[in-house]
Structures are given as structure tokens and as C-alpha cells.
Amino acid sequence: KRVEVKPYVLDDQMCDECQGARCGGKFAPFFCANVTCLQYYCEFCWANIHSRAGREFHKPLVK
């Protein structure tokens, strides 16, 4: 058996893009583990950032 640990998915993290400004101060539910991102995102910022060319295939890690 093999266990994969993702220590970078933490609870209670603010969106790295808007710092809570676009999501009413809620914590960010998404983390993008792609090396070009490596950031936490609220729903609004995830949709906005990941609609751009080259990022549309990134998969979010959801808390």
C-alpha cells in the first residue's frame, strides 16, 4: 500500500488571490496543486483564474 500525504491542504486559509474580498471573508475551499499555481482560491477566483488559457485543466483539491 501507498499513502499520499498532501500537507499543503490546510484548513482555514484565505483566498490567495482576493484575501476574502470577493467571497465575503469566507475561507478558500480550493487549492490548486499545479506547480504554476500552488495557491488557495475561493470559488469566484478559482473560476476566474482557471478559465484562462493553460489553466483550464487544473484540478482543485477541495477541503
Rank of each mutant, 00 (worst) to 15 (best):
K1Q: 05
K1E: 13
K1H: 02
R2A: 09
R2F: 04
R2W: 02
R2L: 04
R2K: 14
V3G: 09
V3C: 00
V3E: 14
E4K: 05
E4D: 08
E4I: 05
E4C: 04
E4G: 05
V5W: 05
V5G: 15
V5P: 15
V5N: 13
K6L: 05
K6E: 10
K6S: 09
K6G: 11
K6F: 04
K6I: 04
K6D: 13
K6P: 09
P7A: 06
Y8L: 11
Y8M: 04
V9A: 11
V9T: 11
V9Y: 06
L10D: 12
L10G: 13
L10S: 14
D11F: 07
D11C: 06
D11T: 05
D11G: 10
D12W: 06
D12Q: 13
D12F: 04
D12Y: 05
D12H: 13
Q13W: 04
Q13V: 09
Q13T: 09
Q13L: 05
M14Y: 14
M14C: 08
C15S: 03
C15K: 02
D16E: 13
D16P: 08
D16R: 12
E17N: 08
E17G: 09
E17C: 12
E17P: 04
E17R: 10
E17D: 07
E17M: 06
E17L: 08
C18Q: 01
C18S: 01
C18P: 00
C18R: 02
C18I: 00
C18G: 01
C18Y: 00
Q19E: 12
Q19N: 03
G20I: 00
G20H: 03
G20K: 03
G20W: 01
G20N: 03
G20Q: 02
G20F: 00
A21F: 05
A21Y: 04
A21P: 02
R22P: 03
R22I: 05
R22M: 11
C23Q: 05
C23V: 04
C23S: 10
C23W: 03
C23L: 05
C23Y: 03
C23E: 07
G24D: 13
G24L: 09
G24I: 03
G24K: 10
G25Q: 10
G25V: 04
G25E: 06
G25F: 08
K26V: 10
K26H: 08
K26N: 08
K26E: 09
F27A: 14
F27Y: 06
F27E: 09
A28I: 04
A28S: 04
A28M: 03
A28F: 03
A28W: 03
A28N: 03
A28Y: 00
A28D: 03
P29Q: 14
P29H: 06
P29Y: 08
P29E: 08
F30M: 11
F30W: 13
F30L: 11
F30I: 07
F31W: 11
F31H: 02
F31A: 02
F31P: 02
F31I: 02
C32D: 02
C32V: 01
C32E: 01
C32G: 01
C32K: 02
A33S: 14
A33M: 07
A33G: 10
A33T: 12
A33R: 08
N34C: 04
N34S: 09
N34Q: 06
N34P: 00
V35A: 13
T36R: 07
T36C: 06
T36S: 12
T36D: 15
C37G: 02
C37L: 00
C37D: 01
C37Y: 01
L38N: 15
L38G: 12
L38R: 13
L38W: 13
Q39H: 14
Q39A: 14
Q39E: 08
Y40A: 07
Y40P: 01
Y40V: 03
Y41H: 01
Y41M: 10
Y41C: 04
Y41S: 02
C42G: 02
C42W: 00
C42T: 00
E43F: 05
E43N: 10
E43Y: 07
E43T: 07
F44A: 13
F44T: 12
F44P: 14
F44H: 09
F44K: 10
C45K: 00
C45P: 00
C45L: 00
W46A: 03
W46P: 02
W46E: 01
W46K: 00
A47N: 15
A47K: 14
N48R: 13
N48K: 15
N48M: 14
I49K: 08
I49P: 03
I49H: 11
I49W: 05
H50F: 00
H50A: 01
H50K: 01
H50I: 00
R52P: 06
R52W: 06
R52L: 11
A53H: 13
A53Q: 15
A53Y: 09
A53K: 15
A53N: 15
A53G: 13
G54H: 08
G54L: 07
G54A: 03
G54M: 05
R55G: 07
R55D: 09
E56L: 05
E56Y: 05
E56F: 05
F57I: 08
F57C: 14
F57R: 14
F57V: 14
F57M: 15
F57A: 15
F57Q: 15
F57D: 13
H58I: 01
K59S: 12
K59L: 06
P60W: 01
P60L: 02
P60G: 04
L61I: 14
L61D: 13
K63E: 12
K63M: 08
K63Q: 10
K63I: 04
